[in-house]
Computed example of a mutant assay.
Amino acid sequence: MIGTSVALLVLGVLLAEPVSRALAAARWPARDPTGALLLWQAVGLAGGLAMLGAGLTFGLAPLGDSLPAAVARALALDRWPSELGLVHMLALVATAALAVRLFGVLGLACWRTLRARRRHRDLLDVLATPWPAMAGARVLDHPMPVAYCLPGPRSRLVISEGALATLAPDELAAVLAHERTHLRERHDLVVLPFVAWGATAPWVPGMARAQAAVATLVEMRADDVARAASGKAALAGALHRIGGGAAPQAGSDTATLASFSAAVSGRLHRLDAHPGRPPRPLLALPRLAALALIAVPTAVLLLP
Rank of each mutant, 00 (worst) to 15 (best):
G3M: 03
S5I: 00
L9T: 05
L11I: 00
L15A: 03
A16Q: 09
E17I: 00
R21K: 04
A26T: 04
P33F: 00
G44W: 04
A46K: 04
G47S: 09
G48K: 02
G48P: 04
L49V: 14
M51R: 13
A61F: 03
L63I: 06
S66H: 09
S66L: 07
L67R: 03
L67C: 10
L67M: 09
L75K: 08
A76F: 05
D78C: 04
W80C: 08
A91E: 00
L92A: 04
V93F: 00
A96S: 09
V100K: 05
R101S: 07
L102E: 09
G104H: 10
G104D: 09
G107S: 15
A109I: 00
R112H: 12
L114P: 00
R118Q: 13
D122F: 09
L127A: 14
T129M: 13
W131A: 12
A133N: 08
M134N: 08
R138G: 06
V139G: 06
P145E: 04
A147C: 11
L150T: 15
S155D: 15
V158G: 10
I159N: 10
S160K: 10
S160P: 09
G162T: 06
L167P: 08
E171V: 01
L172C: 10
A173T: 11
E179M: 08
R186F: 04
H187M: 06
H187N: 12
V195E: 12
G198I: 00
P205D: 05
A208M: 06
R209Q: 14
V214N: 07
L217G: 11
E219C: 07
E219L: 02
R221H: 15
A222P: 09
V225G: 04
A228W: 01
A228Y: 03
S230H: 01
G231W: 00
L235A: 07
A236T: 06
A236E: 13
A238G: 06
L239W: 08
L239S: 01
R241F: 01
I242L: 14
P248R: 06
A250S: 12
S252C: 13
D253R: 10
S259N: 14
F260C: 00
S261R: 15
L268G: 05
H269N: 14
H274R: 14
P275N: 08
G276E: 12
P281M: 03
P281Y: 06
L285R: 12
A289H: 07
V296Q: 11
A299W: 14
